[in-house]
Simulated scan of single mutants.
Amino acid sequence: MKIAFLACNRKPELFRSDPSYIYRCENLGLELSRLGHEVEFRHSSESLQGKQFDLVVFHRPKNTWRIWLLAKYFRLSGTKVLADFDDLIFDLNFAEFSPGFVNGLNILKKTKKTYLSHQQALSFFDGFTVSTEPLKAHLQSLFPNKAITVIPNAVHHQWLAEGIDFKAEPVDFARPVLSYLPGTRSHDQDFKLIATGLSQFLKLHPQVRLDITGPLSFQLGAELASQVSHHEKVAFATFHQRFQSTWVNLAPLEDTPFNRCKSALKVLEAAYWGKPTLCSPIPDVLRYRNAGAVLIETPDDICNKLTKLLEPNYYKEFVQNLRKEALKLSDIRQFAASFISLADSN
């Protein structure tokens, strides 16, 4: 089968370094290639004249003449065309919950324009793939008669290869490290959610350090400055190294319609490297109750559950077989089979 994954982002030269494209398209495509399918990774701005595929996946498409023409061209040639989304960015009624707007990075008018463009593009496609069940429910409310398949995010091919002989570094409980890895600039409000409880915990346990990797403006306060270090965002190829010295990963999310549609990506990333994640109980995270997720269900859980994980024997038991349990929920080899079934269906 010939399959193309088309990026639709604004900067063609950067699409292969976009984490969303890496997880949603590259990861799946590499597994499909391993299975013997012909796979191409392209940007929608590239010349595709004369190209023939059995299936083309458009990643986060917008309503542009170029996308419309490509979708129409491929459909007329008998190619199935799908759109893939991993965030709630296609329903205008929920634009006000966009992290870009919530965190003051975009004005609402611009955000609504972007959402509307994604929503208008939905009619171009035969069906959709999404990363979570809540995203599927939103799409079904807009297009009840179109096929929608959940292809969850999965451990990346590169990590599967590098992790074959991996042995987790023992945690130094004399100087344990909390990690927080915001991938974009739009997580200030999410981090604020745990700031009070986290500050309390750090004050009670001055031996604990907090390592932040990526953009974050929100600060815990000058009195904790000696326990906090901030690093620049790293490329995906070296991203996993940030987990090697981690004791517990942090993944707080505000309770919003946008965040309830997000995947448990931060949980599965940490779990694959044998690390637990203190996280908000969004729907996709609940799948990882026994695979690394430490749920923040009350404000007191932040300090209480982190304190419990400082006990070495309890921690050792908690992380035992974490990688195995995470792979049961996030193995790209399983998801590729589901994708091929979708491609073969009428």
Score class of each variant (00 low, 15 high):
Lys203Gln: 14
Gly104His: 02
Ala137Glu: 15
Gln49Leu: 15
Thr111Val: 13
Asp284Glu: 11
Gln49Lys: 14
Ala291Gln: 00
Tyr315Phe: 11
Ile148Thr: 08
Leu220Val: 02
Thr111Leu: 06
Lys11Ile: 08
Ala4Pro: 02
Asn106Asp: 08
Val171Met: 05
Cys261Val: 00
Ser338His: 12
Arg60Met: 06
Ala264Glu: 06
Ser44Lys: 07
Leu139Met: 12
Glu162Ile: 06
Asp54Tyr: 08
Arg333Pro: 03
Glu311Met: 10
Gln241Asn: 13
Leu310Arg: 04
Gly104Lys: 01
Gly50Ala: 07
Cys279Ala: 15
Phe41Arg: 01
Asn106His: 04
Thr114Glu: 14
Pro215Asp: 02
Trp68Thr: 11
Leu55Asp: 00
Thr132Ile: 03
Trp65Cys: 11
Gly104Thr: 00
Ile3Lys: 01
Trp68Ala: 15
Asn106Met: 04
Asp165His: 14
Arg242Asn: 11
Gly221His: 05
Glu31Leu: 04
His205Trp: 10
Trp159Asn: 08
Asn290Gln: 15
Ile212Glu: 01
Gln244Asn: 14
Leu250Tyr: 03
Asn145Asp: 15
Ser179Pro: 04
Leu108Gln: 07
Ser229Met: 10
Arg16Gly: 01
Leu295Ala: 07
Ala225His: 11
Leu178Asp: 01
Leu69Ile: 07
Asn93Glu: 15
Asp91Ala: 12
Ser47Glu: 10
Arg10Cys: 05
Glu223Lys: 07
Arg24Lys: 09
Thr79Gln: 09
Thr129Phe: 10
Phe90Gln: 02
Gly183Val: 01
Glu223Phe: 07
Val294Ala: 02
Val248Asn: 01
Pro61Asn: 06
Asp18Ala: 07
Pro61Gln: 05
Ser179Leu: 13
Val234Trp: 04
Ser117Phe: 07
Phe243Trp: 06
Gln140Cys: 10
Leu48Ser: 08
Ile151Arg: 01
Ser345Ala: 14
Lys308Asp: 15
Val267Trp: 03
Val39His: 00
Leu309Gln: 03
Ser20Asn: 03
Ser338Tyr: 10
Thr246His: 06
Pro283Gly: 05
Leu204Glu: 15
Arg10Thr: 05
Glu297Asn: 13
Leu327His: 05
Trp273Val: 01
Glu31Cys: 07
Pro176Leu: 06
Glu169Arg: 15
Ile212Asp: 01
Ala83Glu: 08
Gly127Cys: 09
Ser117Asn: 08
Phe85Val: 00
Leu216Asn: 03
Asp172Gln: 12
Lys233Ala: 14
Tyr288Ile: 06
Arg34Asn: 09
Ile340Phe: 05
Asn106Lys: 04
Phe201Val: 05
Pro257Asp: 09
Val81Thr: 14
Lys305Arg: 14
Ala161Thr: 06
Gly292Asp: 03
His138Pro: 04
Asp284Val: 05
Ala83Phe: 09
Gln207Lys: 11
Gln244Thr: 13
Ala161Cys: 09
